[in-house]
Nucleic acid binder design. Sequence first.
DNA 1: TAGATTGTTAATCGATTAACAATC
DNA 2: TAGATTGTTAATCGATTAACAATC
Lengths: 225, 225
Amino acid sequence: MPAKKTRNAPKPSLRRMPRYLRCLQRMAKERPEWVSCTHIAEQLDLDPTLVRKDLAMTGITGRPKTGYLLAELVEAIEHFVGWDTPEDAFLIGAGNMGAALLGFGGFQRHGLNIVTGFDIDPGKVGTKIHGKEILHIDQFVDMARRMHVEIGIIACGVASAQQVADTMVEGGIRAIWNFAPIKLQIPENVIIEYEDLSATLAVLSRKLASRRQLDAEAPVCGNDL
Amino acid sequence: MPAKKTRNAPKPSLRRMPRYLRCLQRMAKERPEWVSCTHIAEQLDLDPTLVRKDLAMTGITGRPKTGYLLAELVEAIEHFVGWDTPEDAFLIGAGNMGAALLGFGGFQRHGLNIVTGFDIDPGKVGTKIHGKEILHIDQFVDMARRMHVEIGIIACGVASAQQVADTMVEGGIRAIWNFAPIKLQIPENVIIEYEDLSATLAVLSRKLASRRQLDAEAPVCGNDL
DNA sequence: TAGATTGTTAATCGATTAACAATC
DNA sequence: TAGATTGTTAATCGATTAACAATC
């Protein structure tokens, strides 16, 4: 079979995939056989054409008038984002965020299985957090190599993040999910994605600030509930 | 003084502001008086013109050849995103993520002070998490109104998120930071920003999947370190 | 058949990058 | 002065939206 040319999908499209998936899984409870992207778009408040294009990237084809076969669509999206084959991951940094990630069961449904946490704090090493063992960072490289773990999650502080990243690269990690708010230097064959909570907070607080400014300028004229 | 027309900055620009701030604060340790956006751009791997435009939004003006006064720049950005005046926030849902957010001290530096957590679980209500009291949700509306808290953080599960959002709106919350991966119905005068971890995960795992596909097609020819 | 929906091509929109004059 | 840098205008790029033919 000829290899599909489904490479480098736009990032915004990729980021919407989980939303489609959740929407479809909720719909699935009512057991409809077919779904239209018009319907999906309504639920998620998106443009139908946008949804259609996104779905097309997964390689699925629909049927005019009826839409897409729901089960098939779910499968197509899951395969597209690589969530159909469960994947092991190691996490470094068992602080607040690290513990939350270790305990969050939902990643299982996203093909991600955080197997073990690593830390340097003697108070944490050897304990279990949410049922997951916490090992010393010194064991990381060896274990990652032996178990062929390819996904690493950085949940430590800014100060040690670069060093942790280096350790991950040394251990053969190929994709890093970085929660430390700092730009990391890594070889170009390693994939990295940043999760920056403060970015969202900046958007939120700026919006609130300018909303207030507007309110102050234009005096209130009616319906505060 | 005439009101600045600094309204509705593009979201990508807003999301970069915290990065500028962190970069500048790190630079500040070496105590340079002036910084150029060329230098900032280098550090963050961005286009200098992009940085210049972003900074211009904050209302600051630089000086050719020298750049910007570092202290002034930090202040301008902090003011722009509304992080110069500390703001109280309430959090609902003291599970894994909620606890992590309650414990994360870093928000203080971002003008956010999560005062109290709320939950419905009798096992949590009345306890403290990271020094923050956990109250019953029934107290939310009353307390939010009395304390004039305007920022709410949703850290509960998908199942109760809409109800929690309704409670927040009733309590007079004006800006919601939502960690539950579901589209919420709220009045248009309430600001909402979504934090969707699975979106980033989708990007990461898709990239990894297609990287692997490439590797499989093109046989390895050299330097695996 | 009529109508809803897909798939695709064209137009629009917004953000990033390039070009360049002004300036310290 | 020469050179680095700002501020601004124009060009490019990428993503979203609109238009429309094909189809079940």
